[in-house]
């Protein structure tokens, strides 16, 4: 079948403003949008710039705004999309070219919450294994699924308005460690998230939960972190 696409293109060296360009490609209804974008790049417009790597919904490279909604191009089938399919870069981050945005501000929020295991050898003998029960593991299971695609953060209206907000993805990754029984850095992270650009910037718009291609209950995780920050400051 013929698939019509309208892709937002922008080359900062030659274009004043981003503009839509229309393409028609031949594709099977069961093919993914990423396949169509490949066909554009390989057969029609080799200059089209987009990020993709694994093409199977794991690496998180190809988040884009598809018909107005944040999705991974490699996880959505052509048959499920209304044509012409509008493809735009994710919002709230500076566009470098076409569908590629500068991810640095996104990873700045991620790094701010110290997304690694913090251990305190005074509390735990570093030479002994730290046992974790299945129940303790279950506590943060949902937030381990994050692939850092930025679909949640770039769907957040507060992130669009205030670039200092760390964003939902950073809070999800903080949640993953705050509720990990082996981690000793919870209080440190909650202090960071209690800052002016931290977790209390969330207004529970729920856009993040709707956008997450991994089905993480993002807003719920954020609310759990808020509650933890409250009890931590008692």
């Amino acid at each position: 079948m013929d698939v019509q696409l309208s892709v937002l293109k922008y080359n900062p060296e030659t274009d004043k403003e981003p503009h839509f360009e229309d393409f028609t490609v031949e594709a099977d209804p069961m093919e993914r949008l990423l396949d169509c974008l490949h066909k554009i790049k390989w057969q029609h417009d080799s200059g089209l710039a987009l990020r993709r790597s694994c093409a199977h919904g794991i690496c998180g490279s190809d988040a884009m705004v598809i018909n107005g909604v944040n999705m991974l191009a490699c996880k959505v089938l052509v048959k499920d999309l209304k044509q012409p399919i509008r493809v735009e870069p994710i919002r709230g981050l500076p566009v470098l070219r076409d569908l590629i945005v500068d991810m640095e501000p996104f990873f700045a929020g991620y790094l701010a919450v110290k997304p690694w295991l913090i251990t305190d050898d005074r509390q735990h003998d570093p030479e002994r294994e730290r046992i974790q029960s299945p129940e303790e593991r279950e506590r943060f299971d949902d937030t381990t699924k994050c692939i850092l695609c930025a679909a949640c953060t770039t769907s957040c209206p507060i992130f669009w308005a205030d670039k200092e907000y760390v964003g939902p993805a950073a809070i999800v990754n903080a949640h993953r460690f705050i509720f990990d029984s082996r981690d000793d850095g919870g209080a440190e992270r909650l202090e960071i998230l209690s800052s002016r650009s931290g977790v209390f910037k969330c207004r529970t718009a729920f856009n993040c939960t709707a956008a997450c291609p991994r089905g993480i209950k993002v807003t719920q995780a954020i609310q759990e972190v808020k509650r933890a920050a409250l009890f931590d400051s008692l």
């Binding site: 701010a112 670039k163 760390v166 202090e191 960071i192 400051s233």
Partner: peptide, 29 residues
């Protein structure tokens, strides 16, 4: 360092609220 590069994007996030109880927590409550 990477942190120096990233710090410029979110300066307030990297300066944690060091007070024993942050005002934002209590306003939220």
């Amino acid at each position: 360092t990477v942190e120096d590069i990233y710090r410029k994007h979110k300066p307030t996030a990297f300066e944690a609220d060091r007070r024993p109880s942050s005002t934002e927590v209590w306003w939220w409550f």
